[in-house]
Write a protein that binds this DNA or RNA. Structure first.
Lengths: 218, 218, 218, 218
DNA sequence: GATGAATGAGATTTCATTCAT
DNA sequence: AATGAATGAAATCTCATTCAT
């Protein structure tokens, strides 16, 4: 997993102390937002990071920018997880990704509601992530680990779905989502031709709809 | 489905106009919170309801109380949906409830994050709801519509899970959750004995954990 | 002289207490800004007005809006002074206006630097003011009280010029501008044909330039 | 005209690079304050000067000190202009000074409001300036270029007055003050004995008042 | 000596709640 | 009882000044 928020390659590198403070602020923000939600004050974030308010605002020009940096970092981590999963050739990469991405969401709860929305931060990363998901899905389907009806948007909805469980259980049962994910994966499997075989009858979420949800805010 | 928020039976009945204002406020709050989230101001709620701030605070002693009333109403509606599903005797009641409860969550998005937490509002309703879920699950399992490994906490997590999809898609694809719910239900089905049969290996969420999540805040 | 800030005719009238607070805030702002400049904090304004911060921000959505209201009020007062001066038929109206407008600037020092700039507040009033100045100038010239070379922009510059004296002297010699205005008016008088007769050689400020200075900010 | 801000004779001379930085900072400050007013941040000044914040604060212990240095420089320039005007023996020195001092104010707009106040910077220079103005006035009066009623404080108010025009017009009509100054000078001329002869009736600003305005802050 | 990051007090603005009309 | 104006604590953000590198 990469650092919380690597400096963009186009910006001049930060001085070492500045970069350190940036990391501390992102870590602190992750903690504070995870605990109190994104309504938590920036003062608390600065306090936890052990820096002054001015430092926070020197590194991030607004609270929103801080949140964006957090979200961007998670999205880059998601991309890296997808790359890693893509190295599997036996069709299990998708399942690996479902698990590792859920672990990531569980570890970074606190700004998950921004993770899947229009926000610009980490756009490239999330685009690559989605491309990898398509490939991983095809590979899984080729190996008959996932039935052919399933679309990549169905997989994307699994990430959203897991988020709902994580946010509800994070405090009291922080690994409960693992059980739920097993049920979800079971739902993706090819179906035996039996009495209650669950053929999907609803139309999948279209790519266009997905882009309206996660794509750039028009 | 019951009224949005019937006065508790222990309170003296409100005058008719007062009761009307109460309903208007709850309806307005549902709309406003659905659109702007619970960070929306109470002034906006009062404005949409067409009443003054004083009236809002006469009916609900705090913003929290207003939210609680909303949540309580939804919980009572959930209970009613469960009662209704319980009238089915063919084992399909659980599936009916999963769908109707999701429809309810979709219609009442805006305070869903409070729906499944500790809050006191509608406690009795949510307790009865859970009892009914247990019965419905047993009935479904008796009819082999759901495999025996599934526990009632697994079902509860389905509600939480659907919430994640609803919150992400409500604006752009308000029925997308239906497709996802199909996948989820497929995951509950008995598994054919084939290569990738999805035996659940993770331990289910325990009743105790569930109570720590949704039970009274200690 | 009109009230500090008459409610615009298009807005619904304020409740009496609200209107009172509005006036108190404008009066307080005039005092505070006059004393400490426009850098003075809004908290001080609220304190002097004897109201809470929230009240200030209920009446004026931003500090800028408060300043605009002040400026708009002064501009309306300027217009009224011009109207009043216009009732004179003996050519002395212009001189009356120069004096009364200076008195007004002296009484409302504190936001004078905004009085003559692009700001939108009281635009109609300032436009009428300028029209009246043209008429008053013509009348004065017809009576040979002002020499014919003088343009209305020369008169406008007299207002700006007086402001410079007022701002410098307001604390220590609050009526010093009266003497200076006499010198200025002497400079407007017809010139006897003597040795150092001051024919004006510089081109006057054009109307177009004047509008770029005081007109709407493009 | 002297350098922007020669080091005080009592300080040890600065190293050449330090002196250079000092000049660059003063030049930058003049530009920045002229454009954005004295509310402009010191960071902007340092940026324009091409030095770091630390350097700025090494040269000037506070923002106020920077402004004082600017003001002091302008005051020394004013003194030099007065000295230069004093070389004229034909009574036109005063008029020359009025023009050149106005040109200086126009060129150094940005801290004009501090130029004529209590601030200590360049006190000696401004004192000499005032002495020269008295001499120049007497000379002009001896040559009948200025009428005898005019006092030196009247002349001082002309500088303040011109400032008002410069500050209002500097962006859009940077030479408009020249026309106004002509009107002002006309107001100083001896008056023909005609109908509307402008005898001055207001008492002039006294020396004592002037000192309260521009003298040391008690 | 120069740099620019860090500081934190103070500024503006918001909003849940109270209260006079 | 209803209204909406008033309240003020708390939030976000700025910037003159200090300090570690």
């Amino acid at each position: 997993m990469t650092s919380l928020a690597p400096a963009s390659v186009t910006d001049k590198p930060l001085r070492r102390d500045a970069a350190e403070n940036r990391e501390r602020l992102l870590t602190a923000a992750a903690m504070v937002f995870a605990e109190h939600g994104m309504d938590a004050g920036v003062e608390e974030v600065a306090r936890v990071a052990g820096v002054g308010m001015g430092t926070l605002y020197r590194r991030f020009p607004s609270k929103q920018a801080l949140i964006d940096a957090l979200v961007g970092g998670i999205r880059e981590d998601l991309r890296d997880l997808a790359r890693s999963a893509a190295t599997r050739t036996d069709g299990t990469g998708l399942e690996e990704l479902l698990v590792t991405a859920a672990e990531l969401q569980a570890a970074r709860s606190g700004c998950l509601q921004r993770l899947w929305d229009h926000s610009e931060a980490g756009r490239d990363a999330i685009e690559e992530f989605r491309t990898r998901v398509v490939e991983l899905l095809h590979s899984a389907q080729a190996q008959r680990r996932v039935r052919s009806e399933i679309t990549s948007t169905d997989i994307t909805m699994v990430f959203w779905s897991v988020r709902g469980v994580i946010e509800t259980t994070r405090t009291e049962a922080p690994t409960a989502w693992r059980r739920h994910l097993e049920v979800l994966i079971a739902g993706l499997r090819p179906v035996a031709t039996d009495q209650f075989a669950s053929k999907l009858t609803e139309k999948p979420l279209t790519e266009a709809e997905l882009r309206r949800i996660t794509g750039p805010n028009r």
